[in-house]
């Protein structure tokens, strides 16, 4: 009996806090999502219908999915490429440490510190436009952060900040692949592409899941860059779920917020549950 209690004793401090600050209030949010603004009348699915038919919600949800679908593969591919190249370099070799330190450095730099620099590049009189004017001979005066190109700009700041962290994750995964596998493959005459395809990538499966999860966690922090660069009302191409919630919060639109919070949570829960069941089936 005592033995059974021990894990729960270890869990108690964390679990009680999570329950008080997230669990119980979330149940309250679910309850409120079915009520009117005063919390007096049961409305059924009305709030959910209102959110679902809300154009801003559709725009924000679509953009968020678009951002996740583009940025996470891009981030994972770029960081994996750099990790593969870096792991090919001799560990003690010149520059290895400098490169690693440099790549992770942006993670420590607050978004607020970088905004001015991004503006130097992106503003109408900025470096990007000067460069483009220089090579095309025409006058470029796009305000990149507010234009239809805001999306690639956001992708750029996201990659700049998070590539290094993902690269270290990949490097750690690469470090666990036994060298004998490659030796055996080389004996069999496998080229470097075949080694990548049949050894490296399959062996990185575990790291792939972890890097994916942590990249999703980081992807929502891009709101900070978006907010600092383009304010609360950015170009419609980068108007995302966080912007929408921020507006509803300002308007104290509790009904919409609660229903949307439940919907977004469900949107995360569903793929996770599917993945979980799928992996359980495999094990």
């Amino acid at each position: 009996m005592r033995k059974k209690m021990i894990p729960w004793l270890f869990l108690a401090p964390s679990l009680s806090g999570v329950m008080v600050f997230m669990g119980i209030p979330f149940l309250d949010v679910v309850r409120r999502s079915f009520l009117n603004a005063m919390g007096t009348t049961f409305l059924g699915w009305d709030n959910y219908r209102a959110v679902w038919n809300n154009e801003a919600f559709r725009l924000a949800a679509g953009n968020t999915l678009h951002f996740l679908a583009v940025c996470i593969p891009a981030l994972m591919a770029v960081s994996l490429g750099l990790a593969l190249i870096l792991s090919g370099m001799a560990k003690g070799g010149g520059g290895y440490g400098v490169i690693r330190t440099t790549m992770v450095l942006p993670m420590a730099v607050p978004a607020a510190s970088m905004v001015l620099v991004w503006k130097i590049f992106l503003c109408p009189e900025g470096v990007f436009n000067q460069f483009l004017s220089g090579i095309t001979g025409q006058r470029w005066e796009i305000d990149w952060a507010f234009s239809g190109y805001a999306f690639p700009m956001l992708l750029m700041t996201y990659l700049w900040k998070h590539t290094g962290y993902d690269m270290i994750l990949w490097l750690a995964g690469l470090g666990t692949i036994p060298g004998e596998l490659y030796e055996a493959a080389r004996m069999d005459g496998a080229g470097s592409l075949a080694q990548l395809r049949y050894i490296t990538l399959p062996q990185l499966h575990g790291t792939f899941c972890l890097t994916g999860i942590l990249s999703v966690v980081n992807s929502f922090r891009v709101y900070r860059e978006a907010y600092l660069l383009a304010g609360s009302y950015p170009d419609s191409s980068i108007y995302m779920i966080p912007h929408l919630f921020a507006h509803w919060f300002l308007n104290l639109d509790i009904q919409k917020m609660t229903a949307a919070a439940v919907m977004v949570t469900a949107a995360f829960l569903l793929p996770t549950a599917v993945l979980w069941i799928w992996r359980k089936g495999k094990a």
């Binding site: 997230m22 949010v29 779920i241 966080p242 509790i254 917020m257 609660t258 919070a261």
Partner: peptide, 8 residues
């Protein structure tokens, strides 16, 4: 994301 748990 923070904004989703912010209501709670």
């Amino acid at each position: 994301p923070f904004q989703v748990t912010q209501v709670s």
